[in-house]
Design a protein around this nucleic acid. Structure first.
Length: 351
DNA sequence: ATAATTTGACCGGC
DNA sequence: GCCGGTCAAATTAT
């Protein structure tokens, strides 16, 4: 027992299980005590008797947590024993000390610090047993010509090259995974080059409450039925602009929405020769002359219009300036372009 | 300053 | 050992 790191992984697992079971039992005892107390709360001296007992039970629960975390943190390759001595000391001998016996050392926060340390080192060191492979069957999939928001906050946590695709696959988890334990995951991978097509595979369902929509599928279905889109152009200060696409519904329902520039945006590089400054903060850009990215609008039934980000006033482009035979646009450098239901938007990559 | 992303290391299953 | 999923330190955005 003094050399817990000599445990086999099975033994360690069993020990941790015992620790947790014991902690649960003790917590149960504590509950009984408290329930009993609340039933006859007139007994003043009984309270005095029970309080130290309850405190002792709490300490035991904390010790159970601490020991389990320390065991989790102890890996087989801990062959460098020099600084393990204090862990060895800490693991089981954590003793219950009531506040009366507290000596010069800071008494009350002692175990909280232990717990924090155990938590921290657990999170930063031992990775074993923490990778669980997702089932290979997605909950559902969607293929989209562009990447648009699906009504949830995602956090990218990885990116990988896969064997039979030249495109990287991006891995996203729900942003509220740790706050609310939301298990939703999605993968996004480009599956076609020209025109670009992206496949989004969803795994699991959101349990978090931080969405305007009840569930993912209904949002996406609704979204697909209204193909109206925004393209936003955000000036980046150094001849670069990011084009992102998002749904109309989202833009309208959430005024503070900022279209994500993080999800594989198409980057637009514009040379100074091909833009002219109209006002202090407004540029006109001729995308036709940018050989890097050209945005093209096809089967237009509506004239694209531009919404100024600040004033939300709608003003149209000149009829022939935004759309020409080469597929190029003139657009305000900053702003939103809104398209109708029949419009199709393609972002063409540099050749 | 915090928060999100990037990127190579790491892990388990096959 | 390879492959794809995940982690987390470093980097970058806000």
């Amino acid at each position: 027992m003094e050399n817990h790191h000599h445990y086999s992984s099975k033994e360690r697992r069993e020990t941790m299980e015992q620790e947790l079971l014991r902690g649960r039992d003790v917590a149960n005892q504590l509950l009984q005590v408290l329930v009993h107390r609340s039933n006859n709360n007139d007994d003043e001296q009984g309270l005095m008797l029970i309080l130290p007992f309850a405190e002792d039970l709490v300490h035991q629960v904390l010790r159970s947590f601490t020991n389990t975390l320390l065991l989790l943190n102890t890996s087989n390759n801990n062959n460098n024993n020099h600084n393990n001595s204090n862990i060895d000391d800490a693991i089981f001998p954590i003793t219950v000390r009531d506040s009366s016996s507290s000596s010069s050392s800071p008494p009350s926060c002692q175990k909280h610090e232990d717990l924090d340390m155990a938590c921290k080192s657990f999170r930063t060191k031992d990775r074993r047993g923490r990778y669980k492979r997702k089932s290979t069957a997605p909950t559902w999939e969607r293929d989209n010509p562009i990447l648009f928001e699906d009504g949830h906050a995602w956090r990218k946590y990885g990116q990988k090259k896969t064997i039979n695709s030249k495109f990287l696959r991006s891995y996203y988890r729900c942003s509220h995974k740790y706050e609310e334990g939301c298990p939703a995951i999605k993968h996004v991978q480009r599956i076609q080059e020209n025109p670009p097509l992206y496949r989004t595979s969803y795994y699991g369902h959101h349990t978090c409450k931080n969405t305007l929509y009840n569930n993912d599928e209904s949002f996406i279905l609704e979204h697909e039925s209204k193909s109206s889109m925004f393209l936003s152009f955000n000036n980046n200060n150094n001849n670069k602009s990011i084009i992102t696409a998002s749904s109309k519904a989202e833009q309208i329902s959430s005024p503070t929405f900022r279209s994500s520039t993080k999800q594989e945006p198409v980057e637009l590089v514009i040379h100074d020769d091909h833009r002219s400054q109209l006002y202090d903060d407004q540029y006109e850009v001729d995308l036709e002359y940018s050989r890097h990215v050209v945005a093209k609008l096809s089967s237009s039934s509506l004239s694209p219009s531009c919404i100024d980000d600040n004033t939300s006033t709608l003003h149209k482009f000149d009829d022939n300036s935004y759309y020409d035979s080469a597929g190029g646009w003139d657009l305000d450098f900053d702003g939103l372009a809104c398209f109708g239901d029949q419009d199709q938007i393609m972002i063409m990559q540099e050749v």
